[in-house]
Amino acid sequence: MNAIDGARLTSLTTSALETVAFVAVDIGTSDQPHEFARHGEIQFHGQGAHGRLSLSASDGFLAELASSMLGVEPEEVDALRDGQAALLELLNIVAGEVIVELGGQEEAIKLGMPASTAAPMTGEIEVLLNSMGEPLRVALALDTAAAS
């Protein structure tokens, strides 16, 4: 299994956001408490890697993400329905990039299904991003024992 660090996880997430939704993000700081309204998690497993990836975001971030993906105004977005669905799709896309980073294109690492969760996940690698003050948190937990 290849190594992945916070900088690479940031790069993969940033690139996915810019490509699918033209959403530009900055590195966030934890100086102020952030309110994450929605969370999602996806598992992956294979010979080369086993772990979980999670995303948490504010409703404001998800409104921007969903509106950009759908080509509508943020006011037209239903935060619960469209925002949550956009979060899970972004999670699926970033996870697809993470498993290639971990195992390359030869390793058969299988992605699970992205699912909403009630609370944020903790992980060895955590990244905080923000778009116009609206936060997105990315957490990656790797189970090296299961992967070996």
Partner: peptide, 28 residues
């Protein structure tokens, strides 16, 4: 149209005669 990029799985899909493949993330 998928996040999937595993070579073995893509080779199987090619053998099954898919007409095209687009990797997510993609620009609209």
């Amino acid at each position: 149209v998928t996040t999937e990029s595993n070579r073995q799985r893509m080779a199987e899909l090619t053998e099954l005669g898919i007409s095209g493949y687009l990797h997510k993330p993609f620009e609209p």
